[in-house]
Design a protein around this nucleic acid. Structure first.
Lengths: 176, 176
DNA sequence: CCTACTTGCTTCGAGTTCGAAGCATGCTAC
DNA sequence: GTAGCATGCTTCGAACTCGAAGCAAGTAGG
């Protein structure tokens, strides 16, 4: 039986601080992206991921692996980006099922237009009060947490409802 | 990342680690709340905020101040919660405009049902790999960041829109 | 008490999200 | 080969989100 006694106040405080900072930062970034480039956060993430790739191209699946989002959401946003000419979609030659998304020049341009503001926000809100030691500490600690999350079992089999046992999907996502 | 302007790699890494951890944690919590109590994150936040209040009652406005959400979203979720009998709504006696939301016994029960799992998730994913010193470091560092965010100017004067200048709302806060 | 403004909440429409179901294509083993 | 399963993406419906507009109830000033 896992421990379910209440969290001690210090742990709780740390947890709340994390949530708080993440929420505020996310909100600010979202705002900035919309103002500077008419992008939503997911769209920005897609474009940025593409820009990282060798030729600005990636399969939908590979894109999905780097994002924290549902598959269908990705399809939707890819369609939006295509409509806006920031991206093209074409099926792969070696595998008809795969769709290759490619960053267009316009897409790259939007990204360039948006990046400075993005960096400015991150710096202003997040980095300003931090020294090198803080940065190192954050990276170390959160790095460990991240590793933990990726390895932790997905909150195990629930006895609960469903009569038969549906094959339990893998519980998804994320990588990066 | 295709950076056009710097953010040295270490800073970037720290930033990405934060986003990553926050996203993964949020996702896991969301999952847990749904499984254990059929709640969404916003609903849980509302119930938890109410549970904190003296008599389990709060005005809509006061609730809103503690959450990171739009006003209309709050109305929507309050309606959902009322439909599920976890909460009641009634207009205040002293001010007909105000709506007082009150936690019902059923609401409190759901909250109790859900809390252990919530705590278990936070502990398993977030706290496990952290020692006291780490907790203290996180709290200190993120606390400073949070203070910075709350004091930083809201990304400058985005000059006018149409007529008059809309008086800049307070910009988030959050609390609990 | 009228007019005009403010405050508190809800309604509305548009856009976005998710998970389940659908549909091809590709693969493997008999 | 070819049946049966796996893989990759899209479509679908329902739910949730936001900001703008709407509507009462309260507050001032004359």
């Amino acid at each position: 039986m896992t421990d379910t006694t209440p969290l001690d106040p210090r742990q709780l405080t740390a947890y709340l601080a994390l949530k708080d900072v993440a929420a505020l930062l996310e909100h600010a970034v979202e705002q900035q992206l919309k103002e500077d480039g008419g992008l939503t956060t997911p769209q920005f993430q897609i474009l940025a991921t593409l820009a990282d790739a060798p030729d600005g191209r990636r399969r939908m699946t590979d894109l999905a692996d780097g994002l924290v989002y549902s598959r269908s959401g990705l399809t939707y946003q890819a369609a939006q980006l295509e409509k806006a000419k920031l991206v093209t979609r074409a099926s792969a030659e070696d595998d008809e099922r795969s769709v290759i998304v490619t960053l267009t020049d316009a897409g790259r341009a939007v990204l360039f237009k948006v990046m400075p503001g993005h960096i400015e926000v991150v710096r202003r809100l997040f980095l300003t009060p931090l020294g090198d030691a803080d940065i190192a500490a954050i990276t170390d600690i959160l790095g460990r947490v991240r590793a933990q999350m990726r390895s932790a079992p997905p909150r195990s089999a629930k006895p609960r409802r469903t009569t038969g046992s549906p094959p339990q999907r893998g519980e998804r996502n994320n990588g990066r």
